[in-house]
Design a protein around this nucleic acid. Sequence first.
DNA 1: ACAATAGAAGATAAAAATGTCCTTTATTAA
DNA 2: TTAATAAAGGACATTTTTATCTTCTATTGT
Lengths: 143, 143
Amino acid sequence: MFSKTCEYAIRAMIFIAQKSKTGNRVGIKEIAKAIDAPEYFIAKILQNLSRKRLVQSLKGPTGGFFLEEESSQCSLADIVTAIDGDNLFTGCGLGLKNCNENRPCPIHNEFKKVREDIYNMLEAARIGEFSKQLEKNLTFLKR
Amino acid sequence: MFSKTCEYAIRAMIFIAQKSKTGNRVGIKEIAKAIDAPEYFIAKILQNLSRKRLVQSLKGPTGGFFLEEESSQCSLADIVTAIDGDNLFTGCGLGLKNCNENRPCPIHNEFKKVREDIYNMLEAARIGEFSKQLEKNLTFLKR
DNA sequence: ACAATAGAAGATAAAAATGTCCTTTATTAA
DNA sequence: TTAATAAAGGACATTTTTATCTTCTATTGT
């Protein structure tokens, strides 16, 4: 469904959001451990998200990644779009470039429905909303 | 959503199914043109599906690919599973290997729903059911 | 000012997916 | 039975994705 890059990105963002609630910044190494992802790779991914202003960062001692109030309101759909683009939400299921209402592929309408369901679900899910369940160990970000 | 390989596979299978209705066998070149896919690449893909008995083939003059009655009843889910495996239908949205009811990722339940929707849609779609609309040029397999 | 810290940026490497070519095998029609 | 045809199979090439390493830059506390 998502690229590995995108899976890591979502997990990292949820983790950062949780830590940000208490005003903490969090370093790459801590993130990598918390979500069980390759350190250098996560660094690249967050660098990218940082350029796109989906996450905030500060260099130097006491530095690290964090989310401003606004960023913690961003949706999973925003993250997916930033990393994988919008193909999942708008593209043809069979990979046709010009598939559309007027010139549909054989599964156009059925596919459109699930695409919309996916989008709605990801748009409704805000990055900041997962902290409580994580803290209670009701949900997990690794393995 | 699907790999490119899988997209080609589905399009090729739908095309073969259509041609098979009238008892025709169809060669790689014709398939490649009809679905606008790289010839040698779909050759490989169909070779694979042939080994898995999802499509039938005959070598030599007048040979080619075709679908027996039984094969034209196979679902898109069968093809996806044969090519991409069942990760789309059973895997965790965030890539966690051990995500499950007892140890869910933060989006486990929402994701499960869309996964099931996707599966149901693909399982309901039989490869042989698209011929009429294709013949009437109401749906398309290329571009 | 300076040393230590931590992300940014660029280069490189490894693995997987995608795409191509060449030889072999099975089948057909003459 | 032979020549032509078309898929099967194996090897190889290219591109994209995933992963790692090194150097540079900004920030902090002393």
